[in-house]
Design a protein around this nucleic acid. Structure first.
Lengths: 230, 230
DNA sequence: TGTCAATACATTTTCGAATCTCAGGGGGGA
DNA sequence: TCCCCCCTGAGATTCGAAAATGTATTGACA
């Protein structure tokens, strides 16, 4: 085991990744017996990791009944979206007002990476390319990193994580074929570089809303199905 | 043990309360041996409770070295204050725009309780009265409760918790004798009832800033001392 | 045949000992 | 005398079994 790293931390990171990438589905129960085999560790470590995820809102704990991945719901998606718009735009305004040249450079660099990464997996169509998902997260993180408040950045980041759960499903629906995601990112980047606060906020708001709308318009049924999936 | 409640949850709540009320001091180390005696429980349960508090930002974990109460610092206080102003005012605007009559009533009621509770303990001067602290938290919670977004409310609440750590110290300094805290609360209540968004935001901003300013102006030395207190 | 209670099972929760890691002190070599 | 390495003790971490709890099944009674 690497120095200064406990097993509990590793398992925590593994679990978190498996939830965020959809290997563990929303609503799915998480019995200790199964997890113990999957991650080859003891109950104590698992409880510790799961407790942390509960506090993050990614896992739900029902006393004496065990843990489960937080289910998705239409109502939560609406709440999450409006909160993200509120807080990410707040963060964005701070970033535009306080970010330095190094920050601008990181925005440009991460946009370039994202722009050159294909969005869909080549081998398995209708599936998000993992590299693209990473680059996408990195671009948005870079934009918000210009905000000088550590706490505000952390909050924004945790909200973005929560919405990863939902983003995973939007591509399956195929209702986004007409959408120009790359263009939305470009608009955000340009407004940021021009230090145009209102323009940037508008671009980010649109970007966040579109994903949610695509989900809500086309597949409330499927949404419900995934959350009922016990 | 009460139905549907685990021991881990109770210990978590106890620990949290002890930190928030200052019975465990910022920066203080938390060895399992001591905690085991204090809360009469085993290591496993303690780890689970502490992990949750780490995720909340109230406790710090250093792998292989154990846990400690999160230290306070001038820089963190500044960051926390500005973030609170950003987010609590956001929450407040939503509350004023969406809160119903029941909400107004809760604001009025909790203000009354706060107004009639003496701020300082009678027996031990220069100490915050626990009842007042509770009423104070309840009043602010009531005001923000009008915000329809659960997530935004939760975020605002967790920020308020974090600043409890600091609020505890401000009374010891005695630099607030000229301040009319009750008047500040009254101004906030009145603006809320008048549904005057900007006025309410101004009142809340002033209220939050004052406590921080009192702390920063009068006692950076004492602040540092408490955090070095290992 | 339907309902209720008692029992058996599966799962979570808790514990205390065994294991491992880090920090400090003492001894040997340069 | 100074520096490096090993040894030791205090403490955190991990484990697996014991206890507690909730759920499903079976059988008896109305």
């Amino acid at each position: 085991m690497a120095r200064g790293e406990t097993r509990a931390e590793r398992i925590y990171a593994n679990l978190r990744g498996d939830i965020l990438t959809g290997r563990l589905l929303p609503g799915q129960r998480l019995p200790f017996a199964d997890l113990g085999v999957r991650y080859s560790t003891s109950v104590g470590v698992l409880r510790e990791a799961l407790s942390r995820l509960v506090e993050q809102g990614l896992v739900l704990s029902e006393p004496q009944l065990g843990f489960r991945v937080t289910p998705v719901s239409e109502e939560d998606l609406r709440d999450l979206t409006s909160t993200r718009i509120d807080i990410e735009t707040l963060c964005l305004r701070h970033a535009i007002n306080h970010g330095d040249i190094a920050w601008e450079s990181r925005v440009v660099a991460s946009f370039h990476t994202l722009d050159r990464t294909p969005e869909l997996a080549t081998v398995q169509p209708r599936t998000v390319n993992e590299d693209w998902a990473t680059a996408h997260a990195a671009f948005h993180a870079a934009v918000l990193e210009g905000c000088p408040s550590r706490r505000l950045r952390d909050i924004a980041a945790s909200l973005r994580d929560a919405s990863e759960l939902y983003r995973r499903w939007s591509r399956h629906l195929g209702s986004e074929d007409t959408r120009d995601i790359a263009g939305e990112h470009r608009a955000l980047r340009d407004a940021v570089l021009a230090r145009d606060e209102d323009q940037a906020v508008a671009a980010l708001t649109k970007h966040i809303s579109y994903t949610t709308r695509a989900l809500l318009d086309s597949a409330p049924a499927e949404l419900m199905a995934t959350s009922a999936d016990a």
